[in-house]
Design a protein around this nucleic acid. Structure first.
Lengths: 147, 147
DNA sequence: GCTCATTTTTCAACTAAGTTGCAAAATAAC
DNA sequence: GTTATTTTGCAACTTAGTTGAAAAATGAGC
C-alpha cells in the first residue's frame, strides 16, 4: 500500500501535521497485509519508542473520522483498523475463531449486495460491513483434522 | 417469536433447567422486534426483580454457545443478541449511527453472498455477519432534512 | 416430605478497552 | 526568537465483560 500513497500529502490534504507518530501509524497500516487491532499498532510502535495509548487512540479516531482509515468491529474486545485509500476499497473480512486475526477478502465484490441493500433501504445505507467467521488455514494446519 | 417456540422444551433439549431467569431472557429476546444489547436485557429484567449482571452474561454466553441465540458485534461497546430459532434465520442487520439501535433486515437473503464466499473460502466459512450502517427513519425524522 | 449431588445464581474483585480534561511539549507562523 | 496553535502525555476514570468461589436453588432417589 505504502508504495502508492504519499502519506505526507495525505495528511496535508486533511490539515493534519505530518508528525512522526501519524506517519508511523499510516506506514504500519499501509505495510500490513491485513487489518490490525489497536493493541498491535501500539505494540509495534513501542518496539521503537515510547508512546501513550491515548495518542494512538486519538490518531486512529481522527483518521477514521476523516475517512483515511476504516474501523472494523470484529468478535472480541479490540477494534481493528485498515487503510482506506482508493487502492483498498471496502471489502468483506474473514476472522479466525482461533487466532482472532482479520484478513481482507478483497476478491469478493460488495456490488451485488449493495444494490440489493439500496433497493430495500434507500439512501439511508451509508456503509456495509461484512464479517466471515471461520478457521484460517494457518490454524487449521495446527490442528489435526478430526480433533 | 414467542408464539412459535416453547422455551421450556427448547431449554430441555439442551439439558438446561428452565429457570425463571433463563425463560425470561428467552421471552424478552422472543418478544423484541430487534436485536437487544446486554444492557437493555439487564435493565428490562431489573424493572421486575434484582439480578446480577454475571448471571445474565452467563445465560447469554451459554445460549450463544448452544446456538439458541446469536451474538451481533456492532459499532460501540456493547454486544447485541437475538433469538436464533428456525423462524428467525441469519440475516443482515441495520445499525443507526445516531441511536445505535440494531434492526433486522430479514427481507435480504444472504444466499448469493454465501455462495460466493464458499467458492472463495471453501468450507472454512462458518458464519457470515453483515452490518449496514446508516441513519434510521426515526432519527431522520428528528433531524430537519439539511441539518 | 427429606437428603444428597448437581446446577444455577450471586458476590466481590478484577481485567482490559477506551475516554476525558488538562498540562507539557512540539510545531508553524510571524 | 516569540507567540498562538496543534499535538502528545499523564493521571484518573468509565464501562463491558470475566473469574473463582460461596450461597442458593433444583432434581433425583428414597
Amino acid at each position: 500500500m505504502s508504495q502508492w500513497c504519499n502519506f505526507r500529502q495525505l495528511l496535508g490534504r486533511h490539515q493534519l501535521r505530518p508528525t512522526t507518530l501519524r506517519l508511523r501509524v499510516l506506514e504500519i497500516l499501509g505495510a500490513a497485509p491485513q487489518a490490525l487491532p489497536v493493541q498491535k499498532i501500539l505494540a509495534l510502535i513501542r518496539t521503537e519508542r515510547s508512546v501513550n495509548k491515548v495518542t494512538i487512540y486519538r490518531i486512529l479516531g481522527d483518521f477514521c473520522n476523516l475517512g483515511i482509515i476504516r474501523k472494523i468491529n470484529p468478535e472480541g474486545r479490540s477494534t481493528f483498523y485498515e487503510l482506506a485509500c482508493e487502492h483498498h476499497p471496502p471489502h468483506p473480512h474473514f476472522q479466525c475463531r482461533r487466532c482472532g486475526e482479520v484478513q481482507c477478502l478483497e476478491s469478493i465484490s460488495l456490488d451485488h449486495l449493495c444494490e440489493e441493500l439500496k433497493e430495500v433501504l434507500g439512501p439511508g445505507a451509508l456503509r456495509v460491513e461484512i464479517r466471515v467467521e471461520g478457521i484460517c488455514p494457518k490454524c487449521q494446519a495446527l490442528t489435526p483434522k478430526k480433533v
